[in-house]
Write a protein that binds this DNA or RNA. Structure first.
Length: 360
DNA sequence: AAATCGGGGCT
DNA sequence: AGCCCAGATTT
């Protein structure tokens, strides 16, 4: 798709002018420090600004410079990330911090291709850092920008399809402001998140209203096309609160990618019908008993059931509790932790919620 | 190309 | 209940 020179100039002027007048005053605006821009861009991947901002500010407090982050350990970083989700981002954050600190002498690389090699930095983040910090003329293509472009040019291609990708790349190369790529990118993203929102876009406030095909044809609601979703599988997990005086038994998720390297309460996956039979699934208790070498006579009480929806599955957590009078278990992958120290360990939301509900 | 990977807010 | 969010990586 070839855009006329006039149209390109008009889009660039309008976006840049709108951004100078209406751009949001966000904590990472007004700096070109690659460390700060990198940090906020990783935090904001698939994450709303309202959710990510407090994490960004806390990270900067706890790790004021790249060196601080490069010298932190993974548990420390996961703890700071706790509750934000997509924890691979936190693990990659540490990897990239160490790489930039040790292999690049503490300076982020300044080309798109070199940025792209760093763990956790993909096409979007490389163009964001590149355009904002180093003035590289590359469009940031995130969900907002995809939606704006889809409506501007009525791109009726299937979502995530190669043809759509091709067209967006073509448009991207043409519309990006070569002089102020960082401001143009942030302006276009702001327009997408404030004005050109998924439903009921506020077209009358939009600086691009006169350039927008969808507006002219009244077809805003048709773009971008939605992807077809499939139902989430439902799993049932038994969770065990095992107490001894003021200590609780916890473990670390090391053998799976899901919530990897976060801490958790001992968990056993239940098969289809365990949870339906009653609130006292003996076979699950037996399975756990073998796992951590409990004596058979432990008395379990049902505590609660809670449900949590993840991006690719729904899990029902059935929580059982016991108070032991001893703590000699063969607990190779488990550790006893004083309840008052639990806040020092990174847990996922499901478990912090459960732990919060343990009766004292 | 499709699946995996969180959590929260809005409708 | 479904959708989407300043996406990246693995399969």
């Amino acid at each position: 798709m070839n855009l006329s020179r006039d149209l390109i100039k008009k889009i660039q002027r309008r976006v840049l002018k709108w951004y100078s007048q209406h751009g949001r005053a966000l904590p990472w605006r007004g700096t070109k420090d690659p460390y700060k821009i990198w940090l906020c861009e990783i935090i904001l991947q698939q994450t709303r600004i309202e959710q990510g901002t407090s994490y960004y500010l806390r990270f900067l407090e706890q790790f004021p410079t790249l060196e601080h982050l490069a010298q932190a350990d993974e548990t420390q970083i996961l703890k700071a990330w706790e509750g934000l989700g997509y924890y691979t981002r936190a693990r990659n954050l540490m990897k990239t911090a160490k790489i930039v600190y040790h292999q690049y002498q503490g300076h982020f690389p300044q080309t798109y291709e070199e940025l792209l090699k760093l763990p956790g930095i993909g096409p979007y983040t490389a163009s964001a850092i590149g355009s904002i910090c180093f003035n590289l003329p590359i469009l940031t293509i995130d969900g907002n920008v995809r939606r704006v472009l889809s409506r501007l040019f009525e791109l009726h291609n299937k979502p995530d399809s190669p043809p759509l990708h091709q067209i967006i790349q073509q448009i991207a190369k043409q519309v990006i402001s070569k002089k102020y790529p960082g401001n143009f990118n942030q302006g276009l993203m702001d327009i997408g998140s404030i004005i050109c929102i998924p439903i009921h876009p506020k077209c009358r406030e939009c600086p691009l209203i006169k350039c927008c095909s969808a507006y002219q044809h009244g077809t805003q609601s048709l773009f971008p096309e939605k992807k077809n979703t499939r139902p989430l599988p439902v799993l049932h997990w038994a969770v065990f609160v095992i107490l001894n005086k003021d200590e609780i038994l916890i473990t670390r998720e090391e053998n799976q990618n899901f919530l990897k390297n976060l801490y958790a309460l001992p968990t056993v996956e239940m098969d289809e019908d365990n949870h339906k039979i009653n609130n006292h699934p003996e076979n699950i208790f037996i399975q756990l008993t073998k796992q951590i070498n409990l004596p058979n006579k432990v008395k379990w009480d049902f505590l609660l059931t809670t449900r949590r929806k993840y991006s690719h599955r729904t899990i029902h957590f059935h929580v059982y509790i016991t108070r032991l009078k001893f703590k000699k278990l063969s607990t190779k992958h488990y550790l006893w932790v004083p309840l008052k120290d639990v806040p020092y360990y990174p847990f996922s939301r499901a478990f912090t919620d459960i732990i919060k509900q343990i009766p004292s």
